[in-house]
Design a protein around this nucleic acid. Structure first.
Length: 296
DNA sequence: TGGCAGGGGTTGA
DNA sequence: TCAACCCCTGCC
């Protein structure tokens, strides 16, 4: 296990807590001692922030791998400079979560995690990925299991996956794993694609629609223009940017986000998302009660 | 304490 | 466009 320090080149103030807790990754948790424990690819790691923009890592991951994962050489300041200047909502979010950076995570782990994220909250997604590791990963040490590969998950039965508490997501994950394992969808090839092509290719996977494809583009491939249009963003765009508009089509919102937030819109999206989750606990008008869909 | 609503979405009709 | 999918959490 090595211990070394890495420093962000183009960001004066980084916030590791926000970076690892904002919902882009589900493989990190904070220990009672206050350091982060998680994974840099298939290397277990501990991370602790020191000063304003340095991290101390304890891990077997080579330094170059860790720098790539934490994106220490990315031009964060110039991305922020390209954000819309007059957007007061984004400015408020920046004051709260501007220390966030985006990680560059392994594509398969990211794909699986976000297939599991449908209709789930962050702590629950964490619990599900942990169960997948424990059930299908390789045991490195006590309580340390690698993330299971596509070929391992492709061999698992849907029932086995369901037993991990995946619910209806088990079928999606089972099919998606087989699509990757068989080469029907090649994740390696997606690395070489531009944003539009990668987004389209990812949506060939079962359980991956436009939102999850954008998450994978943003958190695994570094396509910063990918703007995951989740329910929080839909509500925010309607309330903040189109308060007078009664009905707003999804296409129109995507168009607006692409133009307004620009080529680093995905970075802005994640900052807005985290700010909304933490600060706008009940920000929206309560929906009118709807009759339960459950059959008695 | 128990019941119910709702959750970072996708699919298929 | 909308119901269905599974299960957990938070609220009343």
């Amino acid at each position: 296990m090595h211990e070394y320090c890495i420093e962000y080149r183009s960001k004066a103030i980084v916030d590791l807590d926000i970076t690892l807790d904002c919902g882009q990754s589900f493989s990190w948790g904070k220990t009672p001692e206050g350091h982060w424990q998680g994974w840099i690819g298939h290397y277990p790691a501990q991370a602790l922030q020191v000063g304003e923009n340095r991290l101390i890592l304890k891990t077997k991951a080579p330094e170059a791998v860790a720098r790539e994962y934490f994106q220490t050489d990315e031009s964060w300041e110039s991305m922020i400079a390209a954000f819309p200047r007059k957007d007061k909502t984004l400015q408020a979010a920046m004051r709260f979560a501007g220390g966030m950076v985006l990680l560059r995570q392994p594509i398969w782990e990211t794909t699986v995690s976000f297939i599991l994220s449908a209709q789930k909250q962050i702590p629950h997604i964490r619990a599900l990925t942990l169960r997948l590791r424990e059930r299908f990963g390789k045991r490195l040490a006590k309580d340390l299991y690698t993330f299971p590969s596509a070929s391992v998950l492709a061999k698992a039965s849907e029932e086995d996956l369901r037993a991990c508490g995946l619910g209806f997501r088990a079928k999606s994950l089972s099919i998606a794993a087989r699509q990757v394992q068989s080469g029907e969808v090649s994740l390696d090839r997606i690395y070489a694609m531009d944003y539009e092509a990668a987004r389209a290719e990812l949506q060939k996977l079962r359980g991956v629609g436009p939102k999850i494809a954008d998450c994978i583009c943003l958190f695994a491939l570094g396509h910063y223009q990918a703007f995951p249009m989740d329910t929080w963003m839909i509500r925010m765009i309607k309330e903040v940017y189109f308060p007078q508009t009664q009905t707003l089509a999804r296409d129109r919102m995507e168009q607006f986000a692409a133009i307004h937030f620009g080529k680093y819109g995905g970075y802005a999206q994640q900052i807005l998302f985290h700010w909304m989750r933490k600060k706008w606990k009940r920000p929206f008008k309560k929906k009118a009660p709807v009759p339960s869909r459950r059959v008695p």
